[in-house]
Structure formats: C-alpha cells, structure tokens
C-alpha cells in the first residue's frame, strides 16, 4: 500500500513496427523475395506475367482451404479430410451434371456437399467429443470411399462450357478468377481471425479450452463452425479444381491434406494450437507456389519438390528450437 494512486500500465511496450520486424511473417517475406529473385535469375520465363499467372494455379485452391485450416489448427484441432471432401463434392457435381443440371446448380451442389461433410466432422468431434485427428482420418476414408463407390475407375467429364470459367476464367488481364478468390478469402479470413470476436475465441480456445469455456466462450459452437468452414472451403476448392481439370476422378486432389497442413505450419501456425496469422499463411502459399513453379521451369519433377516441402516442414519447426538452444548455450 505504498503508492495510493493506482499505477497506469502502458498498453504496449514494444512499438508495433519493432514487433513486426522480429516476426515469423517478416522472415517469410524475406524468403519469398529471395525465391522470387532466384527464380527470375534461374529462368528467363519466370518474369513473364502470363507465366506468373499460370503459377498461381499451383497454390490458390490449396491456399483457400489453408485459411480455414489455419483457424482449425489455431483452435487446437485438425481436419485431415479436406482432400476427400474435394473428391466427394466433385463427384456430387458430376452426378448433378449427368442429371442435366445447369452450372449454378452444380455450384450449389458443390458448396452444399462441402458444408454437409464439414457438418458431419463437426458433429462427431464436438457432439460426441471424439479426437479430431482420428475422426477426420475416418471421414477422409469415408468421403473419398463414397467417390470410389460412385465412380469406380470411371470419370465424369463433359462439364458444361460455362462451368469452365471458375477454374479457367480471368477477371481482368492476367488475374484469374481463382486468384481473385484467393485474395478475397485472404482478406475475409484475415479480418475474421484478427478483427472479430469469433477470431478472438479461436485463439482463446487454442490456448486454453477449459478456461475459455469458463470465460463464457461457446467452445463447442465455435469448433463446429470451424469444421463447417473447412468443409465449405473444400467445396469451393472442389468447384475450382473440377472446373480447371474439366473432369472428376475419385483420386482427385489425392494427398492435398498434407500440403495444406504444411502450408499452414510453414505460415507460422503452431501445430499444437494457440498462435498463427493469416498473412503468414498467405506468404507460405506464395512461397510454396513459387517453389513449385520454379522447380517446374527447371524441369524438376513434382515428387522431388515434395522432398523439399517435407524438409521445409520439419526445418521450420526444428530451426527455431535449435536456435533457441544454441543461444541458451552461448549465454552460459
């Protein structure tokens, strides 16, 4: 009781700019610029606007899902079924197409299937309280399995010409519809996570679900919505991908869940939940897209590229840990 007047605690100590400089996102930005520079020196074709525009198709669909996945992982859960939702949505659209429905209906079917799959995941995880990693491994099998039952070794082709626009159309000059969608969702998810009560609840749940519940956060409802969102985003990605490929096979988007999770983790989202940002995921998407494209220009096969992604995934987590240890050792 020494000082009578209550002490005023400053809002922030570090300026925003100094914190920004030290962030994971700025490191990603440096890496992105570096890769951009290397690519432009390595291949004369890289800087061509149309080539760059083509390159965006490498990541836009995955990135859309990654935004929703980032929220799920920040909230301490995971959704491994996203690629299978793409397959099932695509298959549902194929069935609708065969039944003679028009393009708007196909889109509606794609979105509805994605939402329905998300609702199933959400209900199993929040309703029955099952671990999301096992549930979504199960639905991953189930959703793609349904596509296999419907299609077997067949494929849906002959989508209407107007349907092709979603994956192949351009909004303005070299900017594709998909890229515009990518930008729009980056903004929407950035605002949702960083500027709304819902986003705050996501962080709170990821850091401490019990205390969040005690604090009046409707934990179950928030998690359910998150799985609904990943389902919806997978549905949207499915529309784009199906339209771009012009066909549906049950093996469509096989293995994408791993790439999406890698994108999210590379973007600085803690796999154990609680922290991460949308700008980070955007940068990670750009980096992964440019690396894929750069390797493509150099005729490096996709699978070698996947080694790079795997090494990247482990090292982005391992390096900060090793760095911290080395510093501690220096201090002693």
């Amino acid at each position: 009781m020494a000082d009578v007047s209550p002490r005023i605690i400053p809002d922030r100590l570090q300026g925003r700019s100094s914190r920004l400089l030290k962030s994971w996102e700025s490191l990603l930005l440096v890496v992105a610029v570096l890769i951009f520079t290397i690519n432009s020196f390595a291949s004369p074709y890289f800087l061509d606007p149309w080539n760059l525009s083509d390159a965006t198709f490498n990541f836009t669909e995955k990135a859309m899902i990654a935004f929703a996945m980032a929220l799920v992982i920040i909230a301490g859960e995971i959704d491994l079924s996203v690629a299978s939702i793409i397959a099932l949505s695509s298959t549902a659209m194929g069935l609708a197409m065969q039944a003679g429905f028009d393009t708007p209906t196909l889109v509606a079917v794609g979105l509805a299937t994605g939402l329905a799959c998300g609702a199933i995941n959400g209900a199993l995880i929040t309703g029955l309280g099952l671990p999301s990693i096992v549930v979504t491994i199960g639905t991953m099998s189930l959703f793609r399995g349904l596509s296999f039952i419907i299609l077997g070794d067949q494929a849906f082709t002959n989508y209407p010409a107007s349907f092709a626009w979603f994956g192949q159309g351009y909004v303005w000059w070299v900017f594709s519809f998909e890229f515009a969608l990518f930008i729009a969702f980056a903004v929407i998810y950035g605002v949702l996570l960083h500027w709304t009560n819902f986003g705050r609840a996501v962080y709170a749940i990821g850091n401490n679900p019990t205390a969040s519940l005690f604090s009046g956060v409707r934990v179950g409802r928030v998690k359910f919505i998150l799985f609904l969102l990943t389902g919806l985003m997978a549905g949207i990605a499915s529309i784009c991908l199906t339209s771009r490929l012009g066909s549906t096979r049950p093996s469509i988007a096989l293995g994408w869940e791993l790439e999406v999770v890698t994108m999210v983790v590379l973007g600085g989202v803690n796999i154990l939940g609680g922290s991460g940002t949308i700008p980070g995921v955007v940068l990670a998407a750009l980096i992964m897209g440019m690396v894929t494209f750069g390797f493509g220009l150099l005729n490096v096969p996709g699978i070698v590229m996947s080694i790079f992604i795997g090494v990247l995934l482990i090292s982005v987590i391992a390096l900060p840990i090793l760095w911290k240890r080395a510093r501690r050792r220096m201090a002693h």
């Binding site: 983790v265 996947s306 987590i317 840990i321």
Partner: peptide
C-alpha cells in the same frame, strides 16, 4: 530422434518424413 531430442510434434515429423521418404525413392 526428431521427436525425442527436438520435441517436434509426431504428426508434423512423420508428415514431413512421409514426403521425404517417398521423394527419395524417386531420386
């Protein structure tokens, strides 16, 4: 080792080595 010594979550480690091991077959 990655899980023991660096305490990286198992799902991340094995997701990463999954792609690395597959890629190595191609190499």
């Amino acid at each position: 080792l990655l899980i023991w010594k660096l305490e990286i979550p198992p799902i991340v480690v094995t997701l990463g080595t999954l792609t690395i091991y597959r890629g190595t077959i191609f190499l």
